[in-house]
Write a protein that binds this DNA or RNA. Sequence first.
DNA 1: CTTTACCCTCCCCTTGGTGGAGGGTCTATC
DNA 2: GATAGACCCTCCACCAAGGGGAGGGTAAAG
Lengths: 129, 129
Amino acid sequence: MQIGEAARRAGLTVKTVRYYANIGMVSPRQDAATGYRDYGEDDVAKLQFVGKARRFDFSVGECRELLGLYEDRNRPSREVKALTIKKIGEIDARLAELQSLKDELSSLAASCDGDHRPDCPILNALSGG
Amino acid sequence: MQIGEAARRAGLTVKTVRYYANIGMVSPRQDAATGYRDYGEDDVAKLQFVGKARRFDFSVGECRELLGLYEDRNRPSREVKALTIKKIGEIDARLAELQSLKDELSSLAASCDGDHRPDCPILNALSGG
DNA sequence: CTTTACCCTCCCCTTGGTGGAGGGTCTATC
DNA sequence: GATAGACCCTCCACCAAGGGGAGGGTAAAG
């Protein structure tokens, strides 16, 4: 099938699918006559897989690893689990960071009157040491 | 003072400070003889301000807005508070998104044996509809 | 014969900088 | 006077992960 249908079925944009072809992540056959990319069912499955993994915050590089494991019928599930655990750790770190940012900003916002007057604890905090 | 000292005192890299000069965020005087940038105390204060705001996850554009308010001795604190509240909202949205990602990944990881065998619920979930 | 809907490649744009090449300047030391 | 080291400058390329659009080819339908 053509790239448009493959993209629709994978829930991705044509641009994205073309990009994945360019970086060698999901490489379709090429129609010799038209030069059009020719996607098979297996390609669509891979695109769906990658799309889902991306939504799970895996980077393109990690998707490539996961795809390799996905295609290896003998891979140990250990490796997949390790990647997942690592990703969970990263998400945890980012969660903690964002939470602490939010706490600080919230207390700053709470201490600011937010009126027409120029005095502002938020700016004071940002400019202070 | 020269850019190196200004960067050190603001806790930024020289590259970053030069970048801020290029985009017109913090513009130092220029030494006519050497062509070197010449930072004053006020510039250092602005650099520190911007560095802190960046650490608070404000974008460069938002830093520019905040800097404008910071320099305006008559600004209403309302505007600063509004920017802060908006930023808190964004952080909240990202927190929720990451939390749900984490939950899903965690339950996937928990259901995976992580041994030498090829069966892997994580990959199954990624490849399934 | 023309419209419509596809497809292709190629290049620039985004965010917030980082890295390096190639070259000028200042001070200290030999 | 030469040279080394520590500064500084500009300009170009690069990162992630594509998005936007130009310019052009192709295929089927009316």
